[in-house]
Design a protein around this nucleic acid. Structure first.
Lengths: 211, 211
DNA sequence: AAACCCATGTAAACGGTTACATGATTAT
DNA sequence: ATAATCATGTAACCGTTTACATGGGTTT
């Protein structure tokens, strides 16, 4: 019973379940495949390998090379396969985490003239459209039947970026015509209540305020 | 020139730009408003306040209370407002980061019978649908005109969760009928190449393999 | 009686990123 | 000449989370 593997550890095991690789290869593979939904930095790859090997989940073999540095080729051990598979087999999607600075900026839109937020929204839309296009053309090229699962993750990206672009467009049209003035001095403001209580999934009545 | 504020710092400033609040209030407000796209834990709220106050961006005032613990009410200083506004005014959306464990599981679907992945996908769809419904009913209740920007962030959530559910449904239908067998022993496998080179946005030819 | 709300923090760990360090080979 | 590729790592830091600590008041 390995002492609590992180999702990143499983990611490393998973990549090694495709081909045996060196740390260098792993870092590149991660960058070119799972980066968009589970980034793994180069240093962390080496750190993970150093953790996983003594646990017996992974095994490295020194490969002498000439003309370039020697390397250690890592492969999944049987124990490693078992650990990976037992993680995969639980249908638990795990906790998704998002950090989207631009939504913070939108949320605080009351500080700005609506045109500022509109500009931001156009930026968001442009980026989303560009990414959607890139991913779509990637999808078109991924015709190898064995890449079925990889294609699903890319099509996820297409869906999300398209939805994002659509939202940004709609949001721009929904922008208030005038700047929303919120005076923090107005203590117990209905605005603050509306903002904070809303998300609390509670009643739609009462306006006694926060303070 | 404050020495490099984090996005979380800006989030605290932003919340205080709505109403002056105690650390406790801030933590709750964050939990009930920006949590889905920028989570801030209770401890971190206090840590941020302790950083922001000596920088002069925020100022706390002791409020004596009876019947409950005293508290410190924090308000934005003029300098704090300036810092917040200059951050908001740049139309840079910032770097979005996602961590979606279920996409990792999908990506490694070749380890499992397709039915296992199908189960996962159904789980994902159910969760997404539930969240979409919750956010939609939230939206319906957020009718206060001053909550316009907050509503945009919620409608973003609706869009994303709906897109996610739609993807999960489509993905389930796209699942390969048979398990994809990938033998890592087959060094230089075309599969590995297809998976890893694909995302590199490069040529669609050549199959010399990785190793 | 037990649990939760208000209110403030500290301490420790964790997961992860960035920068640094080294060095041969190959491509531009 | 310069930069990029291959290859492996270390060290320091950063942002964040979790658990701990305390204590009166209110609600169930």
């Amino acid at each position: 019973m390995p002492p609590q593997l992180t999702t990143t550890s499983q990611a490393i095991l998973g990549l090694l379940s495709i081909v045996p690789m060196s740390g260098y290869d792993l870092a590149q593979a991660a960058e070119h495949s799972i980066r968009l939904f589970w980034p793994v930095s180069k240093s962390q790859v080496y750190a993970e390998l150093a953790r996983l090997e003594p646990m017996g989940l992974v095994q490295g073999a020194e490969i002498a090379q000439e003309g370039r540095p020697d390397k250690r080729l890592f492969r999944l051990t049987e124990q490693g396969e078992a650990v990976l598979d037992s993680w995969l087999e639980s249908a638990d999607p795990g906790a998704a985490r998002h950090r989207l600075p631009f939504l913070l900026k939108v949320f605080f839109g009351h500080r700005m003239a609506p045109e500022r937020t509109a500009e931001l929204l156009r930026e968001v839309r442009a980026k989303a459209r560009a990414e959607a296009a890139e991913l779509s053309s990637l999808l078109a090229v991924m015709d190898h039947p064995d890449a079925a699962y990889a294609r699903l993750t890319v099509s996820f990206g297409v869906r999300m970026t398209e939805a994002m672009a659509a939202w940004a467009e709609e949001a721009e049209a929904c922008l208030p015509p005038e700047r929303i003035e919120i005076d923090p001095r107005r203590v117990g403001s209905t605005t603050a209540s509306a903002l904070f209580r809303a998300a609390a999934r509670l009643s739609a009545d009462d306006d006694s305020g926060l303070a």
